[in-house]
Measured scan of single mutants.
Amino acid sequence: SEHYTFDGEEQAIRFMRDMEAKNLKYELQIHNGKYIIQVD
């Protein structure tokens, strides 16, 4: 699995939509205002 970190919500949402379009599962965590997305 890989981790991707985003500072902004818009970037994170765009990335998650992209993952959904590719049928990839992901998990979102928010730490200290950063959006951390783990992709299986």
Results as ranks from 00 to 15, higher is better:
S1P: 12
S1F: 13
S1W: 14
S1C: 15
S1E: 10
S1V: 13
E2R: 14
E2D: 11
H3A: 11
H3M: 14
H3Y: 15
H3K: 13
Y4F: 11
Y4W: 10
Y4Q: 02
Y4M: 05
Y4N: 02
Y4V: 06
T5L: 10
T5A: 09
T5P: 02
T5H: 12
T5Y: 13
F6N: 00
F6C: 08
F6D: 00
F6Q: 00
F6E: 01
F6R: 00
F6S: 00
D7G: 04
D7M: 07
D7P: 05
D7Y: 10
D7V: 06
D7F: 09
D7W: 09
G8A: 13
E9G: 03
E9L: 15
E9K: 10
E9Q: 08
E9F: 13
E10I: 05
E10S: 07
E10A: 09
E10L: 06
E10Y: 06
Q11H: 07
Q11V: 06
Q11Y: 06
A12L: 07
A12K: 02
I13Q: 11
I13D: 08
I13P: 01
I13H: 08
R14I: 11
R14K: 12
R14M: 10
R14H: 08
F15D: 02
F15A: 07
M16V: 06
M16F: 02
M16R: 00
M16C: 09
M16N: 00
M16W: 02
R17D: 08
R17I: 09
R17K: 13
R17L: 11
D18Q: 10
D18E: 14
D18K: 08
M19T: 03
E20Q: 08
E20G: 04
E20V: 07
E20T: 06
A21P: 02
A21S: 11
A21M: 11
A21G: 09
K22A: 09
K22N: 09
N23P: 01
N23K: 09
N23D: 08
L24N: 05
L24A: 06
L24F: 08
L24T: 06
L24P: 01
Y26K: 00
E27W: 12
E27Q: 12
E27T: 14
E27G: 05
L28W: 11
L28E: 01
L28S: 03
L28Q: 02
L28V: 12
Q29T: 14
Q29M: 12
Q29N: 09
I30L: 07
I30N: 03
I30D: 02
H31M: 12
H31R: 12
N32L: 07
N32W: 04
N32T: 03
N32S: 05
N32D: 12
N32F: 05
N32P: 01
G33A: 03
G33Q: 04
G33L: 03
G33N: 07
G33D: 05
K34I: 11
K34V: 11
K34S: 06
Y35V: 03
Y35I: 06
Y35P: 01
I36Y: 12
I36K: 03
I36T: 07
I37M: 02
I37Y: 01
Q38T: 15
Q38D: 07
Q38K: 14
Q38N: 10
Q38P: 00
Q38V: 15
Q38W: 15
V39A: 03
V39P: 03
V39R: 02
D40M: 15
D40N: 12
